[in-house]
Write a protein that binds this DNA or RNA. Structure first.
Length: 231
DNA sequence: AACCAGGACGTGA
DNA sequence: TCACGTCATGGT
């Protein structure tokens, strides 16, 4: 099992290369494997985000992309940027209708407009400090995956991110039961991996990249990771 | 023209 | 805890 988790990572990394997550608007993309939206990815650079507004932008993105294609979240961020609102104090000044129209393309506009302002107030109160997982989970609109995404990609903390794709791939391979909880699956990865921020960041991104290509429509056929199947 | 997208929340067993 | 309905828009 230990080798399995690492071997799968190695193979995905060999195939797809560094993913450059989390994409940031102001950083021009250089990842040729990505179609459509390559803007903002910064493969191989694990120092980002550095600037306060870039950290904030990553956080906004984690909310906007909930159950939504990144392309749409990216558009919403561009709209906010046009409104000069990729800064916490500015976003709070937007009236709700303006905010909703800016993020409409990302769906769930009524909830997400509330969530964005909630997380923004929380972000300001932090005053630059790194939030704990428990603190994040208390913010309305922040669940397990979003909390871990914020910690891993905005604050570079060692929290492994699990998403629907992760569960889909690893249940398909017969490595875990489909009813496994978020926390148990997360702990499985953290137990078998070195506590490396780049590895955590890449592994989740690689899972998403691989799943988009091979797990978006049933029946799932994964000739790439099939050699690791336990079924 | 259904199906899907880098989930979270509220509710009732 | 845990399963289930709901939230919304846009791409394929």
């Amino acid at each position: 099992m230990q080798d399995l988790i690492i071997k799968i990572y190695d193979k995905l990394y060999r195939i797809y290369g560094p993913q450059g997550w989390w994409p940031i608007l102001s950083h021009e993309g250089t990842n040729p494997t990505k179609k459509g939206v390559i803007k903002g990815y910064h493969p191989g650079n694990y120092d980002l985000p550095i600037e306060r507004n870039d950290i904030y932008e990553v956080i906004l993105g984690t909310i906007l992309t909930q159950n939504t294609a990144w392309l749409q979240a990216d558009k919403a961020l561009s709209h906010l940027n046009q409104l000069n609102a990729l800064e916490p104090e500015k976003l709070l000044q937007l009236d709700d209708e303006t905010l909703k129209s800016a993020i409409r393309c990302a769906g769930f506009l009524n909830q997400k407009s509330i969530y964005l302002k909630e997380i923004t107030r929380f972000f300001i109160e932090l005053e630059g400090k790194v939030p704990t997982r428990e603190q994040l989970l208390q913010v309305k609109g922040v669940g397990n995956e979003t909390a871990d995404s914020i910690n891993l990609y905005a604050y570079k903390q060692p929290e492994f991110v699990v998403d629907a794709y992760t569960k889909r791939i690893f249940t398909h391979l017969g490595i875990v039961d489909e009813k496994i909880s978020y926390i148990k699956l997360k702990n499985l990865f953290q137990f078998h991996l070195p506590g490396s921020i780049p590895v955590y960041q890449e592994y989740h991104a690689l899972i998403v990249e691989h799943a988009k290509k091979h797990y978006s429509r049933k029946p799932y056929e994964d000739e790439i990771l099939n050699e690791f199947s336990l079924k």
